[in-house]
Simulated assay, not measured.
Amino acid sequence: MMVIRPIAASDLKPLLALAKQSGLGITTLPADKGILTEKIQLSMESFAKQVVSPANEYYLFVMEDVRYQKIVGCCALKAAVGQVWPFYSYKLSRLSQKNQELHIDKEIQLLNLVNDYQGATELCSLLLAPDARVKNNGKYLSLSRFLFMGQQPTRFADNVMAEIRGYVDDEGHSPFWRAVGKHFFGIDFPRADHLSGIGKKQFIADLMPQYPVYVNLLPEAAQAVIGQAHAQSRAAKAFLEKQNLQYTGYVDIFDAGPCVEAPMEKVRAIKNQKCVRIVEVKPSQSLQHYLVATTGEQFRCAGGHIDEYPDGTVALPQDLLTTLQVDKGDIVTILQV
């Protein structure tokens, strides 16, 4: 059975191994031991902190195979982006131009550099080891963050967003970067990707063009990938869209991957989760999958079959009870998935 829990200091080595599998595009999880050590420390401090309103907190979760005590995945939440460095995006907009004398009516697309997501909560660093991409592991890992957010809403912003990895070819080349970023930064895409991932973002503020980029002047290959998710990220985008996060024209400044967003109160998993009491311990008769999370100081989350009763109580099988480290009479949060 898998359990999703806050990261611990002892998880550094397997986290580094996961980061090395992520490749380009996942800038929030660089394969850098020093940076990951800092992220783990910040996460541990954030979970322990009493929070009234979101600031620079960072919550990093791992998925652990409890049978083998092996870390197979991770995911994270940035409570409020842009607290240390501005959080930049491109906003895709349209400009209509008309000349009555020549009967010409043209619509031009523009990319404007903005930081409209400043202060929003970011879903990030979702990664699952290839051999763990079975059954509902990916779904459980992604949804677990929403259960934590629903339990502790004061830790998070009113708006939730995620950057989806944009198109990059097998050699790590981004058509959008070649057409735009390359000309202003003078470094290749992997280098820029790495610098952003380890938190060195001043170069973005110093070198990024402040004027709109006319999309029509870009090569067709670059135009074609604006707002398009990488093949390996399309499923993640579709999954978030089912949770009511939508693409509204914002894209990543490096690879032009889409950003999706929603008010926290509109996120499906946050709206639909319930607090219930465990009243029985027995094998489930249900075929429905649930995600179950503890409500105490130590957040733990796992998926499986449970029996939900109309009076706001549930019966859990013993293996799920043991994995969550809860007992009969405890209150848990459940989400039907």
Rank of each mutant, 00 (worst) to 15 (best):
H194N: 09
P263A: 12
V225P: 14
D206G: 10
Q232T: 12
R191D: 02
H305Y: 02
A262E: 04
T323N: 09
V292F: 01
C275H: 14
D319C: 04
L287F: 12
A262Y: 04
Y247N: 09
Y250P: 00
P263G: 11
V260S: 09
Q232G: 04
A221N: 12
S284C: 06
A262T: 03
K200H: 09
N272I: 10
V314C: 12
S284A: 12
V314Y: 04
V279E: 11
C275E: 14
Y309C: 01
K200E: 10
V279Q: 12
N244F: 08
I270A: 05
L217G: 09
N216A: 08
T294L: 06
Q210L: 06
I253T: 01
L316G: 06
H305L: 13
T313S: 00
Q273I: 02
G303V: 05
N216C: 00
G257L: 02
L291Q: 05
C301V: 10
L291K: 14
G197H: 03
R234A: 11
Q246H: 15
C259L: 14
A238M: 04
C275V: 15
G199T: 14
A302S: 15
P317T: 04
N272D: 04
V279H: 09
F254T: 09
G227K: 01
V213C: 07
Q228F: 00
Q228L: 13
C259G: 08
T313D: 00
L287K: 15
E220S: 14
T294C: 02
A224K: 13
P212K: 11
D319R: 03
D255Y: 00
